[in-house]
Design a protein around this nucleic acid. Sequence first.
RNA 1: CGGGGUGUAGCGUAGCCCGGUAUCGCGCCACAUUUGGGAUGUGGAGGUCGUAGGUUCGAAUCCUGCCACCCCGACCA
Length: 493
Amino acid sequence: MSKGLPKRSEDYSLWYNELVKRADLAENSPVRGCMVIKPYGYSIWEKMQAELDRMFKETGHTNAYFPLFIPKSFLSKEASHVEGFAKECAVVTHYRLKNAEDGSGVIVDPEAKLEEELIVRPTSETVIWSTYKNWIQSYRDLPLLVNQWANVVRWEMRTRLFLRTTEFLWQEGHTAHATSKEAMAETVQMMNVYAQFAEEFMALPVVKGRKTANERFAGADDTLCIEALMQDGKALQAGTSHFLGQNFAKAFDVKFAAKEGGLEYVWGTSWGVSTRLMGALIMAHSDDNGLVLPPKLAPFQVVIVPIYRGEEELELISVKAREIMADLRKAGISVKYDDRDTQKPGWKFAEYELKGVPVRIALGPRDLENKTLELARRDTLTKESFQWEEMPIAEKIGGLLDQIQEGIYQKAFDFRKDNTTEVNSWEEFKQVLEEKAGFLSAHWDGTPETEDKIKDLTKATIRCIPLDQVQEAGTCVYSGKPSTGRVLFAKAY
RNA sequence: CGGGGUGUAGCGUAGCCCGGUAUCGCGCCACAUUUGGGAUGUGGAGGUCGUAGGUUCGAAUCCUGCCACCCCGACCA
């Protein structure tokens, strides 16, 4: 492991890539665009999954699993859906290999061609709605509230670890409802679940909003989203919740017998977050020393590093360390004791900083003598000496973890506030985008043409129309036409 | 798929112009001394120089084809 991470200020994207690799989160795989998520990275994802899964279940959803493969014909049933995904699908055409006659290895057996090709799912609306057709006959079968945890494949041109990979892990919720109103309420609810998760667990402030027609999910009538701001001033879409209207019900002929009599098409929603959240987490809080993890998602919240010479001293320190671990675990705090004698303390300090462990305890002979501990906070990189008698250790650490969770949220919140700029003219728009970036709050005339034009000229897109948008008369920054409120522009990942 | 670039040990590199069997750092292994912020010394292991062919007495080096990866663009959770 070489020392020193690239500096954010010098090369943000190099910093990000190096951080992901050096902190043992993920690495590139032999397959182009696909990543290996390493144990340390995967355990953060597992924590995210656990909390989200709990929140989904608390809002009445249950998990199921649908197949990886989708018959090609399914995809074309919803016109705008196929248009949105067709360009990035992996296709299975054969089901057998055979030995090459010249002995050069195995080749695809041309005899084993599939009658109908299979698509590796880029998302599961089609296969799920084809299944829902059989599950839904009556209003009594509704609502149907299902989620699945899965991998999906989108053949992207350019990939980046966690932010955009060919294969990624996610959850996709797919619900069916008797009324439009109910489906819309579900769409809003799940966006709120995502926002709550982001803020409470990831310590990531997000803007809740609505996508413009241009940015809407292929096959949806309305897309709600949460948008976050990264440290380099670019925006990241962190989660989406789609109101599907009756589009998929019509495409797959999913009707139900209404209470009032008559057959009606079902209303649908779908919503998802992916391993991209890992990217958001990394970019939102980390610094030039490495990862900074919110305590609520850290694989372990505390690490104890013993400082010793010789077996005997280690034994004495370990007695105290085990006592501390027991106290912390009893209080629900996760802790790792690193008593390896293959690395020196200084090396371990740097290592756990790189990996973002929120609190580090150093314990040496001096501490045993003085009845103290050295406590170091990852977020502020500050150290303090703690007296054993001062208060119970679990209480002390618990308090620290809460402060860190709150502290990094506040820091990210202030950053976003400082980097959200109201702009009122086209000149100002271009200047702020160029010199400061971040979110630009500006009036827009509501037309896709203007949105496209701005994107062409500046690469900035409308991230969302904030749900808390203030209704005010104004003029579009680009076209000068009338506008009824401000929207958020940014360059995005 | 268009434009540019790079392939040398696990990682990062020198050597290439001007052909003579590969340099340095990190990491790895052993031993000793070390251990409160990425230790030091000594010794050691590790290479079909991306790949296939050509030129040559001789190719990492020159020529040709192929492959892979990176950056910029179009696409995108």
